[in-house]
């Protein structure tokens, strides 16, 4: 089996490092981007299996990246999981209708990321 890949998109270095540690712990090869534009470039260079995506970032925000990625790469790949302090139900619905598969409200921990990655099919259910 080839190693799964994940792109972590967040303007905070601390959050990227924390997310990287968790996701590498699940066996993924992880790349990082600090805004939507970098993320788009990274996807064009090589499409990851999953994207963990912050909402509020400079240059290009998460929702703009999400719409661009869906237009360019289609509805199913990569799996995109929002990961943001935006916790209003209206925001969640907005992200889902823009094509996000899952949504994490910060703060997060390894259990939440594992659950969400499992729900979107990036991880197998533990028997």
């Amino acid at each position: 089996m080839t190693q799964r890949t994940c792109l972590v998109v967040d303007d905070s270095l601390v959050v990227r490092k924390a997310a990287r540690r968790i996701i590498e712990g699940f066996g993924f090869a992880v790349r990082e981007a600090k805004d939507g534009q970098e993320a788009l470039d990274a996807c064009r260079a090589q499409l990851p299996d999953g994207v963990l995506l912050d909402w509020n970032m400079p240059v290009m925000d998460g929702i703009t990246f999400l719409r661009a990625a869906r237009a360019e790469f289609g509805p199913d790949h990569p799996r995109i999981v929002l990961c943001t302090t935006e916790a209003e139900i209206a925001r969640i619905i907005e992200a889902l209708s823009a094509g996000a598969q899952e949504y994490v409200m910060k703060p997060f921990d390894a259990d939440i990321i594992r659950d969400k990655f499992t729900q979107v099919g990036l991880l197998e259910e533990v028997a």
Binding site: A87, I89, I92, I112, D115
Partner: peptide
């Protein structure tokens, strides 16, 4: 809590079957 609804519950079901009251 926000933590509890993120364990095991797909976000589609959260949006569909829950009402938000602050956090």
């Amino acid at each position: 809590t926000q933590f509890e609804v993120q364990r095991g519950l797909p976000v589609q079901m959260l949006v569909k079957h829950f009402r938000q009251e602050g956090t």
